[in-house]
Amino acid sequence: MDETGKELVLALYDYQEKSPREVTMKKGDILTLLNSTNKDWWKVEVNDRQGFVPAAYVKKL
């Protein structure tokens, strides 16, 4: 969790967005987890953008 109590995830792999609903991340990025109710796609925030990334590409910290 960060200082505001939000849950964080670590990008395990690079991911290039394939639609406007997704976000690009690089391996090693720390992202804010917004929603993990879907087992396949998690909603995150990175670089002031919100979108989805494959759940298998990130790990909760």
Rank of each mutant, 00 (worst) to 15 (best):
S36V: 07
G28H: 05
Y15T: 00
L31W: 03
K18S: 10
A56Q: 11
N38R: 09
V46K: 15
Y13C: 14
I30M: 06
K27L: 05
Q16C: 11
L12E: 04
Q16I: 15
T32Q: 12
V53K: 00
K43I: 14
N47M: 11
V23Y: 04
L8I: 08
N35F: 06
Y57E: 02
S36K: 07
Y57M: 12
D48S: 11
V23L: 15
D40H: 14
Y13P: 00
V23E: 01
V9W: 08
E45W: 07
L10W: 07
E45Y: 06
N47Y: 12
E3H: 15
W42N: 01
R21P: 05
T37W: 09
Q50H: 08
L10V: 15
R49T: 07
W42L: 04
G51D: 01
L61F: 10
T4E: 13
L33T: 01
V53W: 01
T37Y: 09
T24Q: 04
T32D: 04
G5L: 12
A56K: 14
M1P: 13
W41K: 02
V53E: 01
K60E: 05
Y15R: 02
T4F: 14
K27Y: 04
K18A: 10
E3N: 14
G5W: 11
G28S: 03
L8K: 13
S36Q: 11
L33F: 03
D2C: 14
V44A: 01
D40G: 09
Y57K: 06
W41T: 02
V23P: 01
N47T: 08
A56N: 13
L61T: 07
V23K: 02
S36C: 10
R49E: 05
G28W: 05
L33V: 06
K18L: 09
M1G: 13
L34N: 02
K39C: 09
V9A: 11
K26L: 08
N47L: 11
A55E: 03
Q50T: 12
N35G: 06
Y13L: 09
N47S: 10
K27I: 05
Q50P: 05
Q16P: 06
K6S: 09
T37G: 10
V46T: 14
T32V: 15
K6Y: 12
Q16A: 13
E17R: 13
N35A: 09
W42C: 04
K59D: 07
L31M: 14
D48G: 15
D29I: 04
V44C: 05
D48N: 14
L12F: 03
A11G: 03
V53Q: 00
G28C: 08
G5M: 12
K60S: 07
